[in-house]
Nucleic acid binder design. Structure first.
Lengths: 198, 198, 198, 198
DNA sequence: AATGAATGAGCTTTCATTCAT
DNA sequence: CATGAATGAAAGCTCATTCAT
């Protein structure tokens, strides 16, 4: 169920996002979310059947925003070196600029929630599931170049080479282990390309 | 507290590992661990002050084993292409061969447990913390080559480029999205090198 | 408070009757009643101060209807064998023909609702309370014959002998344990008479 | 699941019986039962998986006790007038002497709990279900005489004639509407027989 | 007058932790 | 030492009731 964009609904989703990103799913009781959102507990269950549904809804919204943010910048074929690099840069910037989003998604994807979600998708559409929704636009555009400008490896492997580094880098940036600047980010994007180009 | 290597203690840790890997931290009550380990609940609290301590202890043990497994295979300078590739292969094989270990660590590192741990370390020893313990041997050996055979980027960035793909690949393999063979694994290792080599 | 016979009011009472008969008092939220009645929740509280009051009002209405249905068929002295038998038959037919009414009353009378109600009545009017309202016409007419055609036992005992079987029979019929026909019903009525006649 | 006869277990069951008899299932929170039993809430769930299971267990125990109390006094064929009367007397005495038992059973049998229970039984053993467990000994012994000393009516109908009055009488006695004495009880038993004898 | 979104007290249930045996 | 029965704080969730619209 996608998030109905009521004011109250968004307040709840935002409060939940903030708290869960810092405390985890199980460290964040509904009552706390309610208080932080300035809402009664009961109201949360008006909008979301379950705590689970709330979490899935937040995930869906974040994926969607991410999708929009990225597709806005994508012009064409990711098998094209410059485009690939631009997108890696955009992705890193988006996640670093929205740390709560990153922290939430990290937890979500490595929890029973995300795994369940992946299974569901796998059953209904095996192809769609070779990557998380987050990178679907990337994924499609990468597939196109396989065997031409991009190595002829299984899609999941290309995917790992392209996005594994991004996630790790963002994690380290948010943890304060790396100070990013434009030049470094450019080099990082180029390095990613080096690993998948033929 | 590291795991005292009593028989009972190991039984508990093993039971916990198996159950947590499949069910998550919060899906695995102490009582279930006790039953699965053939031990009384009370006994668990003799060895581990807390559920948290149990989890951290398991994590520590897994890191240690991983460390041992990998250093056993390392001969020299990772800034050397062949060595790097061998190590990526060894790491993938080890994790794919020990899925419970991988699943546990994935959860741990992306949960408040792991994050808290990272913070603790950061405070006491900034250097040690630039990478997770898991890849410390890699990390040290990679540092050595920076600016020579390896790009002159921040260590954390090199680290992300080198290990991000590994983790993502293992995840996809365990999820059944990729079928691995020796040739593919070799190409994967080479690709990793391509991204960090000068 | 008796049911004001507004359209909306009756719609609510009917919806509540249907739902409660099948799901019980506590399995039937006000919100469900409102939906089923095509009315807003708030409106229910305009007509009935409480959920309790709604339930008591429904009970009162059912008693009244039962009263009317039965007195319509009563001509005279129940101490008269034929009249008694006719009335037992009418009562059984009425209840079997209105299963929701029966199910509601059964629950009501055997719940704190009914018991509380009985107490109230007992305090304000001991006589009225020697039987449930439901059988008041029966009761009065039976009293008349005590010591003549009917055994000289306490009224409540006569009452139990006369109506206990009816309620039990209806319950078994509605549960599908007995298939009724005219002949059986006649014999049943005669049997009831046999137990109270001198 | 029958009640394990631990001390604590019995304390819980007794507390629950008392409270539920007076306040109903839904007026009696587990926390209150725990307090009244001098036990922690958690302990209740050690013995009973559910609130439902607790209630069913109490019911089962009461049925069993009733069964024992009555069969202790039964010597032979209920189609025999004197035996039937003795048993009606015994049943009335037992229920009047144990008002909590009566109140609990009344509520149970007329609630979704009891109805569900009856359905279960009906599915597994249609015959057994024509009467509630409570009267099974009665029932079997009555069946024997059908067509001989007892009217040739459907069993459920005989059952209604024989036990409907008992339940109603007990209810009225406990409500204070009838003052019982040995003579009245004897006449009551005889009246019951009058309704079913050929 | 009618509505239904909002509320929060209160319920059932879980589970880490303790401690008497 | 080892055990597991006992505990109760805390969680998720429901629903009668209110009140702004």
């Amino acid at each position: 169920m996608s998030i109905e964009e009521t004011d109250k609904c968004r307040a709840v989703a935002n409060a939940a996002l903030e708290l869960i990103a810092e405390q985890g799913f199980h460290g964040t009781p509904i009552s706390q979310i309610a208080k932080h959102a300035g809402v009664g507990v009961g109201s949360i269950f008006r909008y979301f059947a379950d705590k689970d549904e709330l979490i899935h809804a937040i995930h869906a919204r974040l994926e969607e925003k991410l999708h929009l943010a990225l597709t806005a910048e994508i012009g064409g074929d990711l098998a094209n070196r410059e485009l690939f690099i631009q997108l890696v840069q955009a992705l890193v910037r988006h996640l670093v600029g929205n740390p709560l989003v990153f922290k939430f998604l990290e937890q979500y994807l490595n929890s029973p929630y995300g795994i369940e979600k992946m299974r569901e998708k796998f059953l209904e559409d095996a192809d769609a599931c070779l990557c998380s929704d987050r990178e679907k636009p990337f994924f499609n555009l990468l597939s196109a170049g396989r065997g031409k400008t991009i190595k002829d490896l299984p899609v999941a492997m290309i995917h790992s080479l392209a996005f594994g580094p991004v996630i790790f880098l963002v994690r380290d940036i948010l943890a304060g282990f790396v100070e990013l600047n434009d030049d470094l980010l450019l080099q990082f994007g180029e390095s990613g390309w080096d690993s998948i180009k033929i």
